[in-house]
């Protein structure tokens, strides 16, 4: 049973108060995009054994989406940040590098 700190409420939230939203930082492909790009956007999702960038919704709380960086193997959480951040904050990337110097899957 996971728990994350909602970066908006700045408080620990239980998995049962949240709704998962899949992979984070997808770039929307709208009208005019190529078939291949649109296909990738719609269907291709990462499912790494390791560092993963995800979206979660504090559905039973403030109702806001946020980003989570989690290791799917150890469940270690490297941090949470705003849904409007288009890239993970440097602080989090540094923490991952420190833990996994040769880190794979790091964006």
């Amino acid at each position: 049973m996971l728990k994350f700190i909602c970066p908006i409420c700045e408080i620990e939230t239980d998995e049962t108060e949240l709704t998962p939203g899949g992979e984070a930082h997808l770039k929307r492909m709208g009208p005019g995009s190529s078939d291949q790009n649109f296909y990738t956007y719609l269907f291709e999702r990462k499912n790494p054994r390791g560092i993963h960038f995800e979206r979660w919704l504090h559905s039973y709380g403030c109702g806001k989406w946020f980003h989570v960086v989690r290791c799917t193997k150890t469940m270690e959480v490297f941090g949470t940040y705003s849904a409007q951040d288009t890239k993970p904050p440097k602080k989090i990337l540094d923490a991952i590098k420190k833990k996994l110097p040769n880190g794979k899957n790091v964006k």
């Binding site: 709704t19 939203g21 929307r28 979206r55 919704l57 559905s59 109702g63 806001k64 989406w65 849904a83 409007q84």
Partner: peptide, 13 residues
């Protein structure tokens, strides 16, 4: 409602 919030918060904020 969630759908609108999601698009507003994550794409068209």
């Amino acid at each position: 409602y969630s759908w609108m919030e999601e698009w507003h918060q994550t794409e068209w904020w």
